[in-house]
Amino acid sequence: MSVNRSLSRRDVLLGACACCIPKLTRAATPPPSQTLATDEVASGIYFRRGVDEDATPANDGAIANIGFIVGRDAVAVMDPGGSLVDGQRLRATIRKATSVPIRYVVMSHVHPDHIFGAGAFTEDKPEFVGHALLPNALAQRGEYYRLHLDQILGTGRSGPLITPTMLVKEQDQIDLGGRVLQITAHGNAHTDCDLSVLDRQTGTLLLSDLLFVRRVPSLDGSLKGWLAELTKLKSLGARRAVPGHGPTGVEWPSASRDLERYLDTLQRETRQAIAKGVDIGQAAKTVALSERGKWALFDDYNGHNVTRAYKELEWD
């Protein structure tokens, strides 16, 4: 590298901006002791619906569906939330609902809107459960996510990075006392580190971002892999599912229809674009437009999804 860029000025800029954001936002933010409104999607399974937005100071990063499962001896959290305060409110909600100890915090994948609340649960000394590839993904991205989320929410408000303590390679179980949850580590799908949880007792699948409802899916793993994992998930016999975004409880497997239609369309039209010699930039503007209007935030994510799909499929 022949020319050095001055870093100091940028650092100063960063410092200046980081300290003015919280002043604008903190006053309006409700306290961490505030509880969340949750739905009981199945007996003993409670979920808060995230808003269909991206993280802002006004929503505290509370954009994903997060919740908990109560057993006789233990509570399992999945996911811990989109920011420290989101996690703190989830914890306050659990503590109000039950005195059963929080023994497990399932971190469904690496994306910040699902896992930055994990720091709120460290005092419970739970097992933090993650996909075997989650530590890798966190090593690559975690600090970067934290800095960016801090810039949105205010310095220190994103939350600490928590490393999983219990890794799932293929499948594992956690016993909440009379309630055994089956945890599956999936192949490359929404991301390369997706976990799902099956509660056999109620036939409920907690899918996090393996299932999007109403909010446009985001592809950060493998398109073909995601479709393959959905096929497997549909055959498990579960009757209800909890998506990572959208309504807290949906019928399974019928609720996968829209997602599969979107991913199929993305795959088919991206392949057509590749076959016709439409280049990647042009494809991003033209593929899957029939899906526009069917999803919240479509324009914000579809072009990126096409780029990812194109990169994957052009080598077939």
Binding site: R10, D11, V110, A137, A139, I152, S218, L219, H304, R308
Partner: peptide, 20 residues
């Protein structure tokens, strides 16, 4: 920019901050 960060994901290694 946030979307790029969310979906691309990367360690902040250059010292400078791209956001601003």
């Amino acid at each position: 920019t946030l979307l790029a960060v969310m979906l691309t994901g990367c360690a902040l290694l250059t010292g400078g901050h791209p956001v601003f």
